[in-house]
Amino acid sequence: MRDLRLAVRAGGGFGLGLAFFLIVVTLVPFAVGPRTELLAAIAPGILWLGALLACLLSLDRILALDWEDGSLDLLATAPLPMEGTVSVKALAHWLTTGLPLVLASPVLGLLLSLPAAGYGPLVLSLLVGTPALSVIGTFGAALTVGLRRGGLLLSLLVLPLYVPTLIFGAEVARRGAGALDYATPLLMLAGITCGTIAVLPFASAAVLRVNLR
């Protein structure tokens, strides 16, 4: 709860990730040319990549602020399990970053002339996939909390972990845009999301305890 209120209060939390997503998507046509059919072909991939990068952008704020003002020390000695704390952090990150991206994606799909069949699968895949991005990102943030220049290292650590999610997520969106059957990759994506939500908080909590020593 507090994290949510904080993110809203601090401003930027909502806006920044979303604005970044918009800018990335806007820049793509400048880079590849304005041909509609080309844009339509790469739209699902671009939207997924943009969402992923927008998530990445705000990761280091998940834990760094709490680390700096000492809240993490106090939370660690509080009667909350660390696993719960990091799960809530990941949830707050998703609600402030992932969910707005999901909601904004159809509009940005319009900009990239995504075929009509593609909107449903795109939103669905982002809805199912972005929680995994937040949870994995929280793990990365826990690894690099308290490091100088942690942000760069964070990207290096987290991006390889994003590969499976990106592959299946973009596959759903792509097959959806091509009006193909996308049930299998969607199930795989859901599996990855459920798996990471179930297991990774333990790893993040363990890592955070080590870092607080």
């Binding site: 209120r5 904080l6 700096e68 003002d69 809240s71 939370l75």
Partner: peptide, 21 residues
Amino acid sequence: YAGHADGIKATLSVSENLSFW
């Protein structure tokens, strides 16, 4: 435990900070 840092969130009010803890 109360350490050097107070764990205060600048954007929350005093009572919000306290009721969180």
